[in-house]
Amino acid sequence: MSLTLLIEQILNGLQFGVMLFLMAAGLTLIFGVMGLINLAHGSLFMVGAFACASVAAWTGSFWIGLAASLAAAAAAGAVIELLVIRRLYDRDHLDQVLATFALILIFSEGTRWLFGSFPLYLDIPPLLSGAVSLPGGSSYPIYRLAVIGVGIAVAVGLSLLISRTRLGMRIRAGESDREMIAALGVDITTLYTLVFALGAALAGLAGAMVGALQSVQVGMGEPVLILAFVVIVIGGIGSIRGALFGSILVGLTETLGRVLLPHGLGLFMEPSAAASIGAAIASMLIYILMALILAFRPQGLFAANG
């Protein structure tokens, strides 16, 4: 394998990882603060993608569509928290799973009713449509580098929010003892709505950014949701730092495994067999990684209360 291809795949892994971070950060906040298993988080990812694609097509501006994705996902998150999720905090996890799974079906059918069954497509904005040169002469899309930059900026912003602001102090207190902060006069219901809307907005941002790299279609959030759960288990539930490191670890493992394993197996196997076996093993790598981390650190790499 050439150095150029290796650098390109590392960048692809980072881009995939920071996209997962945008999903996992909101999911780990919601689970860490509220103790809620939210299977509908992937639907908010889909809402952001559809909002961005439809508004961008209507206005001709990707940036207006991006703002619309944040607003639509945050609004959808706040509404479902007020109408549905608020009734689930004191219920067991099975009730939460069933209720949020029902929300997946409602969002999917509602989106299909509004936009139809055909996928939408989102163009990369002209400002980010070029490419930069990599060592060895190949090029890499600027848009994918921008996705990496957005993920890093969001990680820094969330870290500052959690560690330096009054809202962050309340979020951290809510993770430790929600009954105590409620007794001290903090409006816990408003805090929960804000946290849920923030997590939904991050999922919507991820959907909008990914929408320019693939088609925007019904059900696009569910595969990403599974990986986001893997990320927060690896990183540590409730930990933003864990979500970032876990996302990058999963992104690099997934991307490099699909490239390196077939090449490595091809050294002593037939190319066709090496490709099929390598692809099969690569699809299991992140789950093997999760099992190994759980075996040695059941709380994850960076437990929120560790």
Results as ranks from 00 to 15, higher is better:
T4I: 06
E8R: 14
E8N: 13
F16S: 05
V18N: 01
M46I: 09
G48S: 13
A53M: 08
L66I: 08
A74I: 09
L83K: 04
Y89H: 15
D90Y: 12
D90T: 13
R91V: 10
D92F: 05
L98I: 15
L98G: 08
L103K: 09
W113V: 13
W113Y: 14
G116A: 04
L122D: 04
P135L: 13
G137Y: 12
Y143H: 10
V147K: 07
A155C: 05
L158E: 01
L160K: 13
R164C: 11
I171C: 05
A173D: 09
E175Y: 11
A183D: 13
G185N: 12
G185K: 12
T193W: 10
L198V: 10
A200L: 03
L205G: 07
A212M: 02
G221R: 04
I226D: 10
L227I: 14
V230M: 10
G235F: 00
G236S: 02
F245R: 01
G246I: 05
T255K: 00
G257L: 03
H263L: 15
G264F: 00
L265I: 05
E270M: 08
S272P: 03
M284E: 01
Y287P: 02
L292A: 12
F296A: 09
R297L: 03
Q299I: 02
L301S: 05
